[in-house]
Design a protein around this nucleic acid. Structure first.
Lengths: 172, 172
DNA sequence: GACTATATCTTTACAAGTAAACTATTTAGG
DNA sequence: CCTAAATAGTTTACTTGTAAAGATATAGTC
């Protein structure tokens, strides 16, 4: 770790506390929105956020679906989790497993017609909700927030001592 | 729902997709940072983020601690979750339950000396990590991000059709 | 071609979260 | 007072997530 003990921008500790306060605020607000969206998905469709995200990846992948591994990589979760989610969604007829013709280790997953229909319906409402929740920001603010988020992401990712558990290969 | 079907700011769908894209970006970046902090807490202290947050609330509350209910309200989690976390932390000697003298229904929880020592140690490193991850933003950017986050929070909270599951009373 | 590596998925045991039912207490009316 | 309702915490059954071990299958290497 070669970070300086005293940050050049630090004046009487303000910069230090500033970053922490900004982070806590950002986290709280993001969690607030995520909870709100999850509660609405649950109330209107009886679907969890985990299932919505799962189905979103399959919808984007199209008819040939994804392997379990690729799906786990995109959702940033472990294989065991994907197995469980797939079992439950398959039981509800929203998703189906298919053998891969070339590699007998591989399981491919795709939305059933029912799953696709449900997801499209949810996605439309979900987008409306997001727009509604962001309604108090004008276009400049929204764009600035997006830009600053990008800069923050760069700040986090450009570190070379990053712990990052997941940067998995993504063979779809 | 009395939101207009067409948003005044919408020009050929850009504003709509804009909010969703901004939201997804914000969520991804927040999750990235949260995962990184959680991985470091796990690696250096063998402590989960849930336990860190729990101990942070108790540390802030001081020697008399908090009731189970107040703790759950501050952490935005249900009572059953607090019961389980408390059981595990108590088993590790980081936390203790105390009866309330005035109300026999109430359980009060507080950090033990060991718990306090561990938390203070973790909090110092945690703050360093946050500062490090935000290092790529200059002070203006950091302040703008904080301000925009506040505006977004206002945008979400000022809705009157909010679903908000948790706005619990907080008797500490 | 047999042997070892590696890759893919599942299983197991657990942590952390929810909702709903349950227990014990306190509070409010009549 | 005594009972009905509300409050505080726990228990139960379940979902969602992890890490580590296990079962198959493929790929490389001598």
């Amino acid at each position: 770790m070669d970070k300086p003990l005293i940050d050049a921008r630090e004046i009487d500790g303000e910069a230090v506390r500033g970053s922490v306060r900004t982070w806590l605020r950002l986290l709280a607000t993001t969690n607030l929105i995520e909870r709100e969206l999850a509660a609405r998905l649950r109330a209107r469709f009886n679907v969890s956020l985990a299932r919505f995200d799962y189905m979103a990846q399959l919808d984007r992948a199209g008819g040939s679906g994804l392997t379990m591994g690729a799906l786990g990589a995109r959702l940033m979760v472990t294989g065991g989790n994907i197995t469980g989610l797939t079992d439950r969604l398959q039981n509800e007829g929203l998703v189906r497993r298919m053998a891969d013709s070339a590699d007998r280790r591989v399981q491919r997953v795709a939305l059933t017609p029912n799953g696709k229909r449900l997801f499209r319906h949810m996605a439309t409402e979900h987008a409306d909700w997001v727009r509604e929740l962001f309604d108090g920001l004008n276009e400049d603010q929204r764009q600035s927030l997006s830009d600053l988020t990008g800069a923050l992401r760069q700040s986090v990712m450009r570190r070379d001592d990053i712990t990052l558990t997941y940067l998995p290969g993504d063979k779809q």
